[in-house]
Design a protein around this nucleic acid. Structure first.
Lengths: 236, 236
DNA sequence: CAAGCGGGATAACCTATGATACAAACGCTA
DNA sequence: TAGCGTTTGTATCATAGGTTATCCCGCTTG
């Protein structure tokens, strides 16, 4: 039942490095790195934060992927956001509306709001950095809304794949697909059965090739067209 | 439980008053009020900002309602966010991904990013105010995503009506409905034909009463239940 | 007053996707 | 190597909601 374990020492980049890779000034990254915190390993599929919990913690992803989600009364789940390495979940007043769960096994750093907020106040440049990330998160949410509200199921899946490829490795033709079909369904507002259909179709039509869970795009331009994917919204 | 009652859509107030009503400290509201700006009237339905325009302006709503939207290649429109009086659209680097259009005739105040940002830097409390609004916008977007991805069309419409009633007049049983059925469709990711069906059904089932465009909730609790509406996400 | 336009209502038809069920493949771990 | 839970792959059937096409009403504008 332990969703958290001690992390093994040599697994991945330090928070400092991931933040610098995400565009933060090294000196400011140091500040965050030295902030009191604990580091956790989170298993995929085990709830990490439940809705209703206090939001008095900062969470940074060091490796893996976190998701924010809500489960409807009828048990249908919607994932509303993903956080990749270098990204995080900022504290807020009140209690959480959304649960947090890892998509794949992830290492996260967890600090206290009362340690984090003074850093923001003391370092305007740091606050501007997170300000931009907040705006980016807002924009990504809006893009997902367009996806969910106005595109057919193929485009929805294709869009998620494009975005993920862009966020994970800056737009490679090869996507180390981290998602189960159920997770793709939870993100794109469908059922896993239909996601399966869609992926099979995309392969049959020669849009992608699959080896196990991995996906290769046969033609990025064609993928982008099918998905109406315009990556400008991902810029900070 | 009407703690802060916003003005109805066509009542005009100074920006200062609307911001104070939105929870901003009067002295800080003064700062914004004295910022160089122009005031505009925007007709409903006429595009105000097109996607691709620079985002170097701050926009505040004084009266009316603004929407952010994107139109798909096939001409289907998705509205991704609404801004009510006292709310605004903050500047960002780069160019706009979304267009802006008024839902009803609106008065807006438009200032320049280079006048606005120094105010934020000089007044930490002001920046924290907008920081919270950014987080609120993010949360509203996520709620819409759950709505769009996981609820049936009746719940989607009901949820929008609940949210609008809460944002416009702090949760009145009577909603001065500002939307055309087409706009409700654009917000909830449906067609206007279906919105019409849904509204007729809701009336037939005794959930609401309608006089022209106005809507009265026969039973708030029942509406909330149908919509799975939990207003906590609207708190700043 | 007529003409035109936006908004609402309704009907007929159709299809993408949901629901359900079960089997096969995969990957732990005992 | 067996056993079990998870993930993937299909098939069958049902339906919510999309599409298209009118028609009507109330405003605005000429």
């Amino acid at each position: 039942m332990t969703s958290r374990r001690a992390r093994s020492a040599n697994e991945s980049a330090s928070l400092r490095e991931t933040l610098i890779a995400a565009g933060l000034d090294p000196q400011l990254a140091d500040l965050l790195d030295r902030m009191p915190h604990r580091t956790l390993d989170i298993d995929a599929r085990r709830p990490f934060r439940e809705p209703g919990a206090p939001r008095d913690e900062v969470i940074f992803v060091r490796s893996g992927i976190l998701s924010k989600f809500k489960t409807d009364t009828s048990g249908r789940r919607q994932i509303v956001a993903l956080r990749f390495p270098g990204e995080g979940i900022l504290p807020r007043r009140g209690i959480a509306q959304f649960g947090i769960q890892a998509i794949v096994r992830s290492e996260v750093m967890v600090g206290k709001a009362q340690d984090f907020e003074p850093l923001l106040d003391a370092n305007p440049e740091l606050r501007r950095f997170f300000w931009r990330l907040l705006q980016r998160n807002e924009a990504i949410g809006y893009e997902w809304l367009v996806n969910c509200g106005r595109r057919d199921s193929t485009a929805r899946v294709a869009h998620l794949l494009c975005e993920t490829a862009a966020r994970m490795h800056g737009g490679d033709e090869h996507l180390v697909n981290p998602f189960t079909q159920q997770q793709i369904a939870d993100i794109t507002g469908q059922t896993s059965v239909n996601v399966n259909r869609v992926l099979a179709d995309m392969e049959r039509q020669g849009l992608i090739r699959r080896k196990g869970r991995d996906i290769e795009f046969n033609d990025w331009n064609e993928m982008r067209r099918v998905a109406s994917f315009q990556p400008a919204y991902l810029e900070a």
